[in-house]
Simulated scan of single mutants.
Amino acid sequence: MSPEYGPRRCQVVMVEPALSQLEKLTAAETHRLDRAIVAISANPKIGTPVPNTLLRDYADEVDGVRVIYFVTALRSITIVAYVEA
């Protein structure tokens, strides 16, 4: 019998502005951001839609993390445009 798997997560890709911001974060900030990225990959609809755009805004008040991203049409890839921790 094959093992039971949970829902498939989407692949997360960061564009240049997000990568530049990521380089400036401390190890602790990066760890907090990682948790947010995992949450987004598991549920791409977790963020709030930004009006009149395809963007979504995810803010985790507990960890103090914010991620601006959009999800591709097939919901298999999430592209991160902005990170803040």
Rank of each mutant, 00 (worst) to 15 (best):
M1F: 07
M1K: 12
M1C: 08
S2A: 14
S2P: 05
S2Q: 10
P3K: 15
P3I: 14
P3Q: 12
P3F: 12
P3A: 14
P3Y: 07
P3V: 13
E4S: 11
Y5L: 15
G6A: 14
G6W: 05
G6H: 10
P7C: 11
P7G: 11
P7R: 14
C10S: 09
C10M: 14
Q11I: 11
Q11F: 11
Q11H: 10
V12G: 08
V12I: 15
V12E: 06
M14H: 05
M14D: 00
M14W: 04
V15Y: 14
V15C: 14
E16Q: 09
E16F: 09
E16L: 14
P17Y: 04
A18F: 11
A18C: 12
L19A: 10
L19E: 08
L19C: 12
S20C: 13
S20T: 09
S20E: 12
Q21A: 12
Q21W: 03
L22I: 00
E23C: 07
E23F: 07
E23D: 10
L25S: 04
T26M: 00
A27I: 09
A27H: 01
A27M: 09
A28M: 05
T30E: 10
H31Y: 05
L33M: 04
L33E: 02
A36V: 02
A36I: 01
V38Y: 09
A39Y: 04
A39H: 03
I40F: 01
S41R: 11
N43G: 07
P44T: 09
P44G: 09
K45E: 09
I46Y: 04
G47V: 05
G47M: 09
G47W: 00
T48R: 14
T48K: 15
T48E: 11
P49K: 10
P49Q: 06
P49E: 06
P51T: 03
P51Q: 05
N52C: 11
T53K: 08
T53P: 07
L54K: 13
L54P: 00
L54M: 11
L54H: 06
L55R: 11
L55C: 10
R56W: 02
R56N: 02
D57P: 00
Y58A: 04
D60C: 11
D60W: 01
V62Y: 05
V62L: 12
D63F: 05
D63S: 03
D63A: 05
G64L: 09
V65S: 01
V65I: 08
V65K: 03
R66T: 04
V67S: 06
V67K: 00
Y69N: 06
Y69R: 03
Y69T: 07
F70S: 12
F70M: 13
V71M: 15
V71R: 13
T72N: 14
T72H: 07
T72W: 08
A73V: 04
L74D: 08
L74W: 05
L74F: 02
R75H: 11
R75M: 12
S76Y: 03
I77E: 13
I77T: 15
I79N: 10
I79M: 14
I79D: 06
V80N: 00
V80A: 02
A81F: 04
A81Y: 02
Y82H: 13
Y82R: 10
V83D: 02
V83A: 05
E84I: 01
A85I: 03
